[in-house]
Write a protein that binds this DNA or RNA. Structure first.
Lengths: 126, 126, 126, 126
DNA sequence: GTGGTCTAGACCACG
DNA sequence: GTGGTCTAGACCACT
């Protein structure tokens, strides 16, 4: 299930892209599975079909999904692996952001690690 | 020193806000210190004064700085503390993002912590 | 209908903010109603779109309205209640001003009340 | 004693004018009393002498005070009476503002009067 | 169509 | 010198 925030600064098509990536990554959609059609998804998310179309288009350009003429969109075979790489680099970005903030707060490694662990625990990451 | 990245998708006025917050947080500007005037900063950053004005305006609305009529902008006394809180919640957001990604990758706590530490080391956080 | 007084010392964007607040408070625009678009209102009030934008922006920051991407501005659900509170404190400010003046005139409570009532009557408040 | 708020939207010279009017109205300075010199007041209020000068100038133009060459500023004889009139009309303005707010809140006369009385009581107007 | 950002330049009030 | 307001107009991303 993808959730759209209409007031977020993140473009809706981008939110859809990220949602789809997450679902593919976590196995909701496997290799060569058929994705919901543009119209279906548009109705489900209460969004303009153009917006879904753009999201699918970009996913296709990135090689994450592919289209079969007249049949819809499918998950590209290697995409789970690619997305794994992508997710890692995404995580790295966030970590770098955290480090930048930590630096302006003059925190050392121990302190940052401590804060990080606290949130991990609180969020009950297994 | 604030650096503007003209090709970043982050608006210039936002970059200035963040830059100023960082300088106040790290003590470059202390409580009740005078900030550079709008025109000065505009020239220094090679940006339109309106853009600086907007940044200062938002910082003022947020209570981070205040204006004295005809004299310029000054750092609000409590703002360093407030910014510390703000920075923490900013860090928390990024950590939550990391957790969300980790979950879709089916990572457990140990693995996340390991990745995090690796980046900390690599970035030479003291 | 909002009326702009071009010769007033009160900035136009401020007049628009107050006008909108009044219309929301008095129910012309209800919760989640769509406001006129920036361009529409700009034409109607014969004002630069930037000026409307600034007014909407501040209303949004204050939580009175919110934006849906590509669709326009909408009245925030709780804003009528919030505005009620705000209006009350606004009234209190004016009353305090009256009291300050009364004190420097050495008036007692009875006299102030009498003046107040006289104006109420004259203005035909029902 | 006049208090200056450097961050207020009300110009400093205006704050001084109002402070002076209040002091004359309440009898701190009587007819033909000498006011503090521009320099004295500037030092006391920690304000630029130009600013005091402008305040005195406007008070003089309004006939509230008069200058004796080389001797300073004095309270004009009739000014207490004039200021009384002025204070009344000032009060009327505030009352009109209150009524405007009350109208947008759809309050009737009784309700407005009640709020007004409550604040009077709370402020311990004798 | 919607809002968002930015520039250039003008004019103003204030200190 | 300071900030504040406003206009005109351009360009952009999003729906």
């Amino acid at each position: 299930m993808i959730r759209i925030n209409e007031s977020s600064p993140i473009p809706i098509y981008q939110q859809i892209i990220e949602g789809m990536q997450r679902e593919i990554l976590s196995g909701v959609f496997g290799a060569d599975d058929r994705l919901p059609s543009i119209r279906e998804l548009a109705i489900e998310l209460k969004v303009n079909p153009n917006t879904i179309s753009r999201a699918y288009q970009e996913l296709s350009t990135a090689g994450t999904i592919y289209f079969k003429r007249g049949q819809g969109a499918y998950v590209a075979p290697k995409s789970a692996d690619d997305l794994l790489e992508q997710a890692k680099s995404e995580m790295a970005k966030h970590i770098l952001e955290i480090i930048a903030i930590a630096r302006s707060m003059n925190l050392d490694r121990m302190q940052v690690r401590k804060i990080f662990d606290a949130v991990l625990e609180q969020q009950e990451v297994k």
